[in-house]
């Protein structure tokens, strides 16, 4: 920082003056982070964690992108696409880390485009079809609350890269949760029709919530958020069954998306996502 002139300090870092509309001062979230796996850290566990969280993000991003040209308002379309792109960015960083530590040296595209549905480790809630706007909001509320709580824990991960990715993601996820919560309250406390749709969405999402709490102990944080939002919205708490097992911290978990056990909806989603890359492998653009 140059402190010899107060005006120079004001303008510092903005040499690209003429292009205000594009913003300035972009940051690389992994700048200066050591990519070596620290001693005592299980690389396989880090890789599995990155893969699972990357898959959650990629599949969620694809579902959110499906709102493009179909959202109820142009402004909402951009908002949903922005959230999807945040998640896509998280997926890229997580896949990148996975390739560094799982011993394969694969790049992000190998994970996104060249694995089959049974190799994906995303939770099943992420892959369910889009449904109506109320369903998308409800799912986003649950997934973003859950992911935010996970990422807050992961900022203390012994793996420095995973911790840096989590630290970047926390700020994004805090906005996703806020966006979803505001809409949930608006719809739940809105018209008779919007209230009815939110109730239906909560019933649809409910059965898939238990699966979220298998690997990390963040149940209390998520329940607290859902309780606060549903109370403000005049909606019932979604009902779910307890997790299959809360004792194991490893991956994958039995009987869940984390185990590669998916609904029939994942395969068509991946077919659309991967079609171009598989038709033209090694293509660049």
């Amino acid at each position: 920082m140059s402190d010899d002139h107060v005006y120079m300090t004001l303008a510092e870092g903005h040499e690209d003056d003429a292009r205000w509309a594009y913003g300035t001062g972009f940051e690389d979230p992994l700048h200066g982070v050591d990519i070596a796996v620290p001693e005592g850290v299980d690389a396989g566990e880090v890789a599995a964690c990155c893969l699972a969280l990357g898959d959650d993000a990629l599949v969620s991003a694809q579902r959110l992108a499906e709102w493009c040209t179909r959202a109820p308002e142009l402004e909402e379309e951009v908002a949903l696409a922005n959230i999807g792109l945040d998640l896509l960015g998280q997926a890229r960083l997580l896949y990148g880390r996975c390739g560094q530590v799982d011993g394969t040296g694969r790049g992000e595209d190998a994970y996104a485009y060249f694995r089959d549905p049974g190799d994906f480790r995303n939770v099943r809630l992420a892959e369910l079809p889009g449904g109506d706007f109320a369903f998308s909001i409800t799912r986003l509320l649950v997934l973003s609350s859950w992911r935010l709580a996970l990422f807050e824990q992961l900022t203390a991960s012994p793996d420095p890269v995973l911790a840096a990715i989590a630290a970047k993601g926390v700020k994004e996820l805090a906005y996703h949760r806020q966006y979803a919560a505001e809409w949930a309250v608006r719809l739940g406390d809105g018209t008779e029709e919007s209230h009815r749709r939110m109730r239906t969405a909560l019933e649809q999402v409910g059965p898939y919530i238990g699966e979220l709490f298998t690997a990390y102990d963040v149940r209390d944080e998520v329940v607290a958020v859902l309780r606060q939002v549903t109370e403000a919205a005049g909606l019932p708490m979604p009902a779910w069954k307890p997790s299959p097992s809360s004792s194991s911290r490893g991956y994958p978990m039995p009987g869940a998306g984390r185990d590669g056990d998916h609904t029939e909806h994942l395969a068509p989603l991946l077919a659309e996502l991967q079609g171009v890359a598989r038709a033209h492998p090694e293509a660049t653009w």
Binding site: A21, Y22, G23, T24, G25, F26, E75, V78, A79, N82, Y175, Q178, Y179, E182
Partner: peptide, 11 residues
């Protein structure tokens, strides 16, 4: 929130 999403997405 719309302004945030539409007009500040490029930093």
């Amino acid at each position: 929130t719309h302004a945030r999403d539409l007009y500040t997405r490029r930093n």
